[in-house]
Amino acid sequence: MGKPLKQIAIYGKGGIGKSTTTSNLSAALSLMGFKVMQFGCDPKSDSTNTLRDGSYIPTVLDTLREKSGLDAHDVIHRGFNGVYCVEAGGPAPGVGCAGRGIITAVELFRHQRIFEELDLDYVIYDVLGDVVCGGFAVPIREGIAKHVFTVSSADFMSVYAANNLFRGILKYSRSGGALLGGVIANSVSGGYSKEIISDFTNRTKTRIVEYAPRSITVTQCELRGKTVVEGAPESEQAQIYMSLAEKIAAHEVSEIPAPLGVTELREWASGWSEKLLQRVEGNVSPGEAI
């Protein structure tokens, strides 16, 4: 028996900074001496770009499209500090089934026992966050990832997506699926946005693992095709990702979240809308000042 493999899935609404967070986490974990694979589960196939100087790699599904058999080694590419990069890929927009594509790609790696062969410490799945169908829930089903983290801002749409994910986790938790490690609050720089996301995590009985503020350093590094951890290792933002990596490395026990019901979530959101509106109008009750 080798060392225990830790499989983690990171979900979040599209564009919320999920791939940025995941890539920085992979880079940080690798700097801590772990053997890491980042597995992009998004038909956009750009999850691992910043680990590879901004370059795209052939995806599992693109390669499968060309030939029926596939050796998983052909689609594993090394990135920053030896991180193993894989992109599941997907069909052309509007045809086929992207969800089934994710299932196919993940199953292929499991069947070929690649994780064991590479003697990995971490496999991190970066998954399109809306969990629109069963395919996108594959990483959280039994026997794949054990811990799920969700990247969310204080934006309501992002919170909705997180809540949907919690519903998925709750469902699969009854059959041995992954549990929730917590929320990585992204682009949250304090003030009301911090309050909103904290309130949401309190209500859904989960916790915030790390706050990552909006940062120009991230943009600068990404434009150069790099993670912050690689491109600006001394920056404050890089330290945040290193801290996140340490927390995740130390993380052992995940929990079952308590997602809000549809009406509950809407009421919660409209409650916050009213509060924010009052603040904009300066009509703030004592003790509620930002």
Binding site: L64, G96, C97, R100
Partner: peptide, 10 residues
């Protein structure tokens, strides 16, 4: 087969 399901069977 699975290939058509993933990529579309048209």
């Amino acid at each position: 087969v699975e290939r058509e399901i993933v990529f579309g069977g048209e």
